[in-house]
Nucleic acid binder design. Structure first.
Lengths: 109, 109
DNA sequence: CGCAGGTATTTGGTGTTGCTAAGTACCGGT
DNA sequence: ACCGGTACTTAGCAACACCAAATACCTGCG
């Protein structure tokens, strides 16, 4: 993917991660791997970790330290009530944006 | 709209403006007004102008100075070949992102 | 035993972007 | 002469994704 993706991810990546966490608890390494599988081939390792720290500081997720058999302890994140609320708002904003863009795309063809 | 929109607009706003310019030439003030009508209520005046300068410097648009009856001369922008190419790539990136998000939204409900 | 390699997180610095706020410039009507 | 609408510019700021390097833990191989 090109550089356009980098800028477009700003703001949406956060929603993506929250959406993932809304279905199941997960830790950084796992999320990064999953995103890569989904085609976000060039999402930087560090990006996800920084994002997770951010949403933790905002109180959108709860964290549990879980020992791993293969490395240092994992920080497992799970969405809390506040995070769920925030995610709802994310979806509303996304829906609005997607609608406008869909209209524009149709109009320009 | 909330702060989420601000971050989500990064990258997409550029595509939006390019899409507008792909249907017709336009100038900054006009574009801002149109966006506000479309519900982008809080897009800052200066944001659009800065964006236009950027895409001009990247060679995505051509510019013509046209005198106005009601104020200082307008800078009318129109999409050129390179801009059209860039817009195509924008749509591809957007489509990819929208698809992933749609999947996520379905999955979490 | 040492050391490479996969797992897992942290940290510091960079570039791009949209926002804020203030300013400049041109014009018509009161 | 001045206010308000039109139209563009500029400087500084905050947030976010990226990059690079470092740290920590464990297994397996020579």
């Amino acid at each position: 993917m090109g550089k356009q993706a980098t800028e477009m991810l700003k703001g949406t990546l956060e929603g993506i991660v929250l959406a993932i966490l809304s279905t199941r608890a997960a830790y950084g390494y796992e999320i990064t791997a999953w995103l890569r599988e989904q085609g976000f081939s060039d999402i930087a390792e560090g990006t996800i970790y920084a994002l997770l720290v951010r949403i933790e500081q905002r109180g959108l997720v709860d964290v549990a330290k879980v020992p791993s058999e293969k490395g240092p302890p994992r920080k497992v994140y799970s969405l809390n009530a506040q995070g769920r609320e925030y995610l709802d708002e994310f979806w509303r904003t996304w829906a609005f944006l997607a609608e406008r863009l869909e209209q524009l795309r149709e109009g320009s063809n």
